[in-house]
Design a protein around this nucleic acid. Structure first.
Lengths: 186, 186
DNA sequence: TATACTATGTACCAATTGGTACAACAATTT
DNA sequence: AAATTGTTGTACCAATTGGTACATAGTATA
């Protein structure tokens, strides 16, 4: 039983990369079996509801990671500035300094959003809200903190789009720097 | 012959909406025939190379629109501030105040990017460069203008992702205001 | 009105799609 | 070692995929 859980979890990162690259509808079972090395038998054993369940599991996995490495530091770090810096570092790492795209963003744009609307909505809400808390604890007004945190999360997503469109990860790191300054300069 | 061209052009906006909603791989010929009202016969008459040619035509169409309504005003308006304001107004209109997503952004994120990399790259480059010109003419240094225009275009793309993920167009209009201020405050 | 070109509907195609059924195999528990 | 449970490969399925062939219908020009 422990085996089951761990084997299933081991595939999630691979599935994540596949969905990132191909999008939901582009990720055919053919590429999924090829890249994971699991046959349909195993795949449907671990994810009886097929592709949808795979994507849900990946989204949950991502959510967990961000909760732990981004949202909690933002909300709970003694020093809000330190928390914000932790976020920027974690984000830079997570997106491989601009070489990796945001799965949630990929799903959000086209109509696969409808299949996972709650998860997608929650992901960005949690991020924006956590960041706003840190900004407030750092002296911003409630209103300004809301605006700025929205701007920053949007800026990160847009920077990923841009970096990928230009095939130039530096666009991401550059924009990220800019946003970090914006979060901390006061 | 004039008929041909106009009929073909008439379909482009519809095709654009389809690709926006479904992404490239999700946009099946079944939905394309249904939504455009054109059978395969006509479709492959106008676009002999199929889906790829349709998408290329749509991208060209978008490019033209932005050149005319966004890039030229930015680069050539007597008053750079006015040019920048024209851009923000045009962008707000084009994206239906946050109810519509950016096709180029949709294509950029997953691996359909590879099929249209040049067009996608050029779209954002032209936008960023044109905006940077206006910012410079408005007194910014070359370096700052580059950074800021990149931040703004990224911010717009991210705002579209966010607005769609939250199913709340106001996120877009809000962020757009924020960015406009950033472009003009000095 | 005859001619030429454009546009379209229909039938068809092989390949791929996501998914199911199930028998066989492997690993734990008892 | 027997029984139970977890895992996997294979064969199969109907539906859909993007695309082609082509005869016909429509339209403009000469």
């Amino acid at each position: 039983m422990a085996k089951t859980v761990s084997e299933r979890n081991d595939v999630l990162p691979i599935l994540g990369e596949i969905f990132r690259e191909y999008g939901f509808s582009g990720a055919s079972l053919a590429v999924i079996t090829a890249r994971t090395g699991l046959g349909k038998g195993s795949l449907y054993h671990f994810f009886p509801k097929g592709k949808v369940e795979m994507a849900e599991a990946v989204l949950n996995h991502i959510d967990q990671w961000f909760e732990e490495n981004v949202y909690i530091p933002l909300r709970e770090n003694q020093d809000p500035t330190a928390g914000i810096n932790v976020m920027f570092q974690a984000v830079n790492d997570y997106f491989y300094s601009g070489n990796r795209v945001c799965l949630v963003g990929v799903f959000a744009l086209d109509n696969t959003r409808d299949k996972f609307s709650k998860k997608i909505n929650d992901y960005f809400s949690a991020w924006i809200n956590s960041l706003a808390i840190a900004l407030k604890r750092n002296g911003m007004s409630t209103h300004e903190a809301k605006i700025v945190s929205e701007d920053i999360v949007a800026g990160i997503q847009g920077a990923l789009v841009l970096a990928r469109s230009q095939n130039d990860p530096k666009v991401f790191t550059r924009t990220l720097k800019s946003l970090q300054k914006r979060a901390l300069d006061r």
